[in-house]
Design a protein around this nucleic acid. Structure first.
Length: 464
DNA sequence: TTTTGAGTTGTTCGA
DNA sequence: GTCGAACAACTCAAA
């Protein structure tokens, strides 16, 4: 502990516990200022609910700091200018961050580092948003595995880098600008298990405890959207109100379900490491031959998909859940994404962009990795002849139709059997359920058999 | 260097 | 309704 001061620039690591940048700064310096910059470049691209979520988490971070006698210093503007300006004004020795993997953040942080260096101030980066830092999980040949399973085995045997623990430090209580606000309320997902009304890391911990408590049945229930059997921790991981290491530790390995859930955290690391190593994945298919896929510029179909009006109930339920809550169950994400890419033959990047805009848990590396996986263009991707059938997926994973009834209420009067393909239902049952196809609910916008053949031959043509 | 084996999440068809 | 096979090779990791 030296008699020096430091700045911790928070970005997507909005917590004090198990936060290596924060811990490193507070164990090294006698005075620490916590800074958040509202980057208008980013904030303007986020949906209103995601901004509300961010601002709620900032308020919670500020409150947490206040309990230690500090405050969160807020600035609005371009971090390339503001970080160095604040660091200089506060006369700090170093600025601490948790690094991020996106091309945007890598470029931004390099510019900040240069600006700081001109003033003789050091930028010290940690990796607090992933379990292992990029570059540490290696195959025997020393490379980043292009196949998930070998990556996972390497991920499991990689030792956790030691993260520092904090010390006694005096915290700055300068607040700068007032905490940002929006007209939107902190988004509540009333399905979520655990206390979702509590923002910030204390809320995240409660949600983690709830997820861990039902993780034993994760393997069986994770695919059932009606009962929300997933962990629902993605939003906290995205904002960093939850440390992925804390999540892995609390969930543990005491049952197959718990191990399966921890395994998902290694998928998260894998996609983060891949994007960090290959930033072009944001735009380009990982397998170059797919650059010439004959995508269709189907604006009408895309709009119907976004609105949840495709005429396929399971798909529409998912897209409406997304629109109304900013969150969608994982199984349904795969089915809706597959429908856009394979049945409508719309470029995966268009769907990726939409998801990135509206998802509360939107994380560029995860979103891109998963969309490339669905499109068959990505690492270890779904085989091209694997085309999800939205009717069969609905029958298998929402057999009673509770999920569809919830999000597509105009079909709620149909029997479980009829619910998944209303176009094959007799006029009597449709009438008694109050359904008029093409009026109260759309007829299917695309034929499944035709579109399946179409996408298979498109993939075939690209492979030759 | 060469060889071998494995690879998140499916669907369809025919018996 | 249920089961197994075929789909179409291909890339990558590891021995």
């Amino acid at each position: 502990m030296t008699s020096t001061s430091a700045l911790v620039w928070f970005r997507r690591d909005l917590r004090l516990d198990d936060n290596p940048a924060w811990a490193r700064a507070t164990s090294t310096h006698s005075r620490v200022t916590a800074l958040f910059i509202v980057d208008l470049d980013l904030a303007d691209r986020a949906s209103e609910p995601r901004r509300a979520r961010l601002f709620g988490d900032l308020a919670a971070l500020d409150e947490r700091l206040a309990s230690f006698g500090g405050r969160l210093l807020i600035r609005t503007g371009d971090p390339r200018l503001l970080v160095a300006a604040e660091a200089s004004r506060l006369n700090v020795e170093a600025v601490y961050i948790n690094r991020d993997v996106t091309p945007y953040s890598v470029t931004r942080d390099a510019a900040v580092e240069t600006a700081l260096a001109e003033k003789g101030i050091e930028l010290r980066g940690e990796w607090g948003t992933v379990v292992h830092a990029p570059g540490l999980v290696r195959t025997n040949a020393g490379t980043l595995s292009q196949v998930f399973t070998p990556f996972f085995r390497a991920w499991e045997r990689t030792e956790w880098e030691e993260w520092p623990t904090g010390g006694d430090t005096e915290f700055s209580n300068e607040i700068g600008e007032p905490l940002p606000t929006t007209n939107s309320a902190y988004p509540l997902l009333d399905d979520l298990v655990g206390d979702c009304s509590l923002p910030g890391e204390l809320g995240a911990l409660a949600r983690l405890e709830a997820a861990a408590a039902r993780a034993d049945s994760y393997s069986e229930e994770r695919n059932l959207p009606a009962i929300m059997g997933t962990s629902q921790l993605s939003i906290d991981l995205r904002f960093g109100t939850l440390s992925p290491r804390t999540a892995a530790e609390v969930i543990g390995h005491t049952s197959p379900g718990r191990s399966a859930l921890v395994r998902q955290l290694s998928w998260r690391d894998w996609y983060a490491h891949l994007l960090y190593e290959r930033p072009e994945l944001l735009r380009d298919p990982m397998k170059p031959q797919y650059a010439s896929m004959p995508w269709i510029d189907d604006s009408e179909g895309f709009a119907a998909w976004v609105r949840g009006q495709t005429g396929y109930p399971f798909v529409d339920a998912g897209m409406r859940q997304l629109r109304e809550t900013g969150w969608m169950h994982n199984r349904v994400r795969m089915v809706t994404a597959s429908f856009l890419v394979k049945n409508l033959l719309v470029d995966w990047r268009r769907g990726e962009r939409y998801f990135r805009h509206v998802l509360l848990d939107a994380d560029v590396s995860q979103n891109v990795g998963n969309w490339q996986w669905v499109a068959g263009t990505g690492p270890d991707a779904s085989p091209y002849n694997r085309v999800f059938n939205p009717v069969l997926q609905g029958r298998r994973f929402d057999s009673e139709g509770a999920y569809i009834r919830r999000w597509v209420p105009e079909l709620a009067g149909l029997s479980a059997r009829a619910l998944h393909e209303p176009w094959n239902v007799g006029p009597l049952e449709l009438a008694s359920a109050g359904v008029v196809l093409g009026d109260t609910y759309p007829a299917p916008i695309v034929d499944l058999a035709m579109s399946r053949e179409r996408v298979l031959s498109a993939y075939q043509s690209v492979r030759e």
